[in-house]
Design a protein around this nucleic acid. Structure first.
Lengths: 339, 339
DNA sequence: TTTTAGCACTCTTTCTTTTTCAGTGCTAGT
DNA sequence: ACTAGCACTGAAAAAGAAAGAGTGCTAAAA
């Protein structure tokens, strides 16, 4: 197993490598551990055989392996407390009462990108348990309507409804009334099934061409949960990290960032701040993503920071934790204020 | 002035350099011009002194200067006709009647990015001469309303209206009615002045606390013209170009692409397809941007392609021209169909 | 049993040097 | 007006040399 000096050593190496981005040699750790470089070397060899350290070539110093970072994050990191300076910068955002929640999150992530030189992401959407508050239907012409859905959280979405054939205005009005009567208070992710099982049978009874109407509204009302805001800040930041120093590395990471399935790799369902190192990230072996889910009245999503594996883990985790907490607090405050 | 063989020579050099990305030497042009390399060299020297060619070092072959490309684009390019193959690929999009106009444009630009390996951009917004068709106001609670504006082009925008103090429902209803009566048919960029000069005086008469109501609605209704869609496709593509072969070049161009004022450099107000080479682009000395404005019923914007100066000018220009034409046609078709 | 000193060895990095080569400008001759 | 010939230039690639950081291992010391 791993001894206590070895733990300390691993931690020191991770920290040093995070700071300098150069392999750590045995000599440089002598004073710290009050022993000779040979002793350190022995322990290093041990840590390497356990899979926590790696060499870049046969006679180089050591760098942490993926498992090394993992072990550091899981077992060696200091108790969590955000630094005063970082807190101060983030506070400027939350002290500004003018800012809407969404803008506050964006701004916070800009700050985080800015001070860490990593890339940050917010991925937000309406909560799927939001309730439908009202459906408005506005005719544009005989074959085209606009359906507007409003949720209890004052969120509005609209969709153009195309009718396969002209439908009399009264029938549209009747249907709209029915939709409102039956759907108000329904969580938006339950709307489709309610349409199918509760509304369809009724419409069938009193509208001639009920299929045209039903299909049009079904299409319009069932894709509402899918809208997603995505905002990246500081995509170019990661290039400042010394691990991306060759053209190929840079091109590679940029392509990954631009690729279509990037967004799908970001969503987090866990409430805790989670760390995915290297291949765990599924984005690229050379990056770490730290992320957490947030949820406030009406909105939910993921906030994340992407940086090199050699990331200031503690700092980033603390900032995200702080941010998550303040987002959720601000959400509550805003709600109170509305009352 | 520039002689006719020299024109031919300049053209050949531009074309060759576009193809290979390597400085063009005098020997390689001998067969083409049926003369010795020395003759070519003399002409090259001439073209260089006129500012159309450059050397990368004292004994290198020639590459076109910015003025060289300019001269090529303005005077030497072949008559414009899109290639059959490119046309075919773009047609697949416009033949698909299911696609909405916006999606069709996006898809087209994806195709262009894909086949050219350049970056393409669409920057769209609602036309500012769209007319307001309806205002809906939905109360959320005593102090909060949602204002929904619908234009004659079936575009919907909404904004939350915060009231500084509670206002009776009837007054809101009255105001809404008034807004609809007075504003329907007004171009959206004239809404603010109509509010100020026509509506304000009336409201004042019959609502006690008219300033609260007026201000809230003024805020809600006057920022509607500013919304802009921006979509980049293939941002990473430009990295495939050999001019971006050093880390610094790559980092530099990426930063420019990510920077805040990038979007502002893209908008084009001219109806023609325009070419901005190098510094003309204002984006980066090493890129060319080809762009044009489009306008269809209800929507307008810019489509653009960004690539290296060493760009396949003819091809890109032709594709954009073709695209612009088809966007505008499709716009008309869609309109007819609605009738 | 753990730690340390010492040493040979390995590999990267950096710097110089050399060679090759594509291409030029210029002169003089056709 | 064109071309052949040649000296010259600078980039790029290859090869070599020297420096340095760091290792593993052995044998001795604690």
């Amino acid at each position: 197993m791993i001894g206590s000096r070895q733990k300390e050593l691993l931690k020191e190496i991770v920290l040093e490598y995070i700071k300098t981005a150069r392999p750590v040699g045995s000599k440089s750790l002598c004073k710290k551990f009050k022993c000779s470089s040979a002793t350190i070397r022995n322990d290093m060899a041990e840590l390497e055989s356990l899979g926590y350290l790696e060499k870049t070539h046969i006679s180089s110093g050591r760098i942490p392996s993926e498992e090394g970072y993992r072990y550091y994050v899981d077992n060696l990191m200091e108790p969590k407390k955000i630094s005063g300076e970082d807190m101060l910068r983030l506070q400027t955002v939350f002290n500004n009462k003018e800012l809407e929640l969404n803008d506050a999150i964006s701004k916070s992530l800009e700050i985080i990108s800015d001070i860490t030189n990593y890339t940050s992401v917010i991925l937000g959407k309406e909560s799927s348990d939001n309730k439908l508050q009202k459906v408005e239907v506005v005719p544009i012409n005989e074959r085209q309507l606009i359906a507007i859905v409003i949720t209890n959280t004052a969120h509005v979405e609209n969709k153009t409804v195309m009718l396969d054939e002209a439908i009399p205005t009264e029938e549209i009005a009747k249907t709209t009334e029915l939709l409102n009567k039956m759907l108000i208070g329904t969580p938006i992710d339950e709307v489709p099934s309610k349409l199918e099982f509760d509304i369809k049978p009724i419409i069938r009874n009193y509208i001639k061409n009920y299929e045209v109407v039903y299909n049009a509204f079904y299409n319009a009302l069932s894709n509402f949960t899918s809208e997603r805001d995505v905002k990246f800040t500081g995509k170019a930041n990661i290039l400042k990290q010394p691990e991306f120093s060759t053209v190929d590395d840079v091109k590679n990471i940029i392509s990954k960032f631009e690729s279509k399935d990037m967004v799908s790799k970001i969503e987090e369902t866990d409430d805790e701040v989670k760390v995915y190192i290297g291949r765990e990230s599924e984005i690229d072996d050379n990056v770490t993503i730290v992320k957490t889910k947030y949820k406030v009245a009406g909105r939910e999503g993921t906030i994340a920071v992407i940086g090199p594996k050699r990331m200031e883990y503690e700092r980033v985790i603390n900032m995200l934790e702080y941010l998550k907490e303040h987002i959720e607090n601000k959400g509550k405050e805003d709600e109170l204020e509305e009352k």
